[in-house]
Design a protein around this nucleic acid. Structure first.
Length: 422
DNA sequence: TCTGGGGTCCTAGGACCC
DNA sequence: TCTGGGGTCCTAGGACCC
């Protein structure tokens, strides 16, 4: 059996931990640039807000109901996610983190020691006690069914946080009641296709014959069908390291001048290099892209991206940034108002297995690696961006993201730790 | 005025090889 | 009349996830 532990309205729940007065209040967390709603509490849903709403379009609701609005603070959420996961790892040997707010737990063998439902209920209570984050748990023979269970557990209080789908009767009942478009693996396109084929519930889909499924769908559809029938086939365990790392942002203000764009690209490129070094890997390719504002039909539209490769895989900030800036100069078109740019590093390999090259353009690699280590150590000790490239510019750049309601980094920065007055 | 960021997997088809 | 057979690698784009 698999368990799926999902943190309820995770970003909002984290904010509520540090603002306890918000219990029972409508709360929203916004995307970068304070653009769209990305997380919201049930209270906020109840007054008509939705995930994905641009905040300026729902301003009247926010004002009328005094909705508490936060800018996104990924450092804070990642730190809390780590804490929640460490509690799970102490309880169960095999935990696969699926995203920042949910993890799969392999419960194979545990049923001999504990009744699984009680076991998971105790774990959920422990997570709540230690972190104050509420979770919903689904337990089932496949991951897709476990996810379904966690949604039932979230929706109906009667489950007391844990919904277990462990008999054929429960499975059929769950499939009958569950919303087809909410099934893991069924997105909007597959939902439309299924509807066209006369399928409107997960149960109808699961009851189709395998040959029918094979005839109408490829591998992903077939996998979902197996999972819904309680046959586990989705393996997420072998994803050890990312294949690509992307750093990109929409700008706070549109920019058209090359120096500002250079500052943005240099910032994103050095962030990618940092992430590479953090996992002891190097990239063999870097991509830079630029985009104008797709929502402004009155303006000239332009977008472009170019990839270049390195002879030797690298995580060197200077090398990656230089390559990225050369691409930028190549694809930059004057007179365009740009809204977004980004850097992607790909073809990532472990730094322990680097193949050297006779014609390497950087002759002093060991020294350069030492330089990066020193910079990383200084930035770790004295704070992010203590040492950075001059071309990255200062914090007053026009393209920097807007975040007017950001919570302090309570969990990761001693200068911003929570103050309690007694 | 204003509209997110970061990923994965799969498949078809092109280009190429002998 | 008649136009092989068996591969690999790469990339773009679709679909999906949170």
């Amino acid at each position: 059996m698999w368990a799926l532990i999902d943190c309820n309205s995770f970003f909002c729940s984290v904010e509520k931990v540090f603002h306890p007065g918000l219990e029972g209040q409508p709360v929203c967390v916004l995307s970068n640039n304070d653009g769209c709603i990305v997380a919201l509490t049930p209270e906020a849903k109840a007054i008509g807000l939705h995930r994905g709403d641009p905040i300026f379009k729902v301003k009247d609701i926010v004002d009328r109901y005094k909705v508490e609005v936060f800018s996104t603070n990924m450092y804070l959420y990642a730190a809390m996610s780590k804490r929640v996961n460490s509690i799970m790892r102490k309880a169960v040997m095999h935990v696969e983190q699926n995203s920042i707010d949910e993890s799969f737990l392999d419960l194979k063998g545990y049923e001999r020691t504990y009744p699984l439902e009680e076991f998971m209920r105790e774990l959920a209570e422990r997570i709540r006690l230690y972190t104050d984050i509420p979770v919903s748990v689904g337990v089932a023979p496949s991951k897709t069914l476990a996810k379904m269970g966690s949604k039932f557990a979230k929706k109906y209080r009667g489950y007391r946080g844990v919904c277990m789908i462990d008999t054929e009767e429960k499975r059929r009942k769950a499939l009958e009641l569950f919303d087809l478009s909410d099934v893991w693996g069924i997105g909007s396109r597959t939902f439309e296709k299924l509807h066209y084929l006369g399928i409107d519930s997960p149960l109808q889909f699961a009851d189709k014959s395998e040959s029918w499924v094979r005839a109408h769908f490829h591998k992903p559809g077939h996998q979902t069908w197996l999972e819904l029938n309680g046959i586990p086939c989705i393996d997420t365990s072998e994803i050890i390291q990312n294949k690509n790392i992307c750093t990109s942002r929409s700008f706070g203000e549109m920019v058209s001048d090359l120096p500002s764009l250079k500052a943005s690209i240099a910032t994103f490129a050095s962030s990618c290099a940092n992430k590479l070094r953090g996992q002891n890997t190097g990239a063999q390719a870097v991509t830079v892209f630029l985009m104008s504002n797709r929502f402004r039909e009155d303006l000239e539209q332009y977008g472009n991206s170019v990839t270049t490769t390195f002879v030797v895989p690298t995580s060197d900030t200077l090398e990656i940034t230089n390559a990225a800036l050369r691409i930028l100069e190549h694809i930059y078109k004057p007179g365009i108002l740009y809204k977004k740019s980004g850097v992607i590093v790909s073809q990532i390999v472990s730094m322990n297995q680097i193949q050297g090259d006779l014609f390497d353009s950087i002759p002093n690699r060991p020294q350069r690696q030492q330089l990066m280590k020193t910079i990383d150590a200084l930035n770790h000790r004295y704070g992010l961006k203590t040492i950075q490239l001059g071309v990255e510019g200062d914090s007053q750049q026009p393209w920097k993201v807007k975040c007017e309601h950001r919570s302090p980094n309570y969990l990761t920065d001693l200068n911003e730790i929570l103050t309690v007055r007694c």
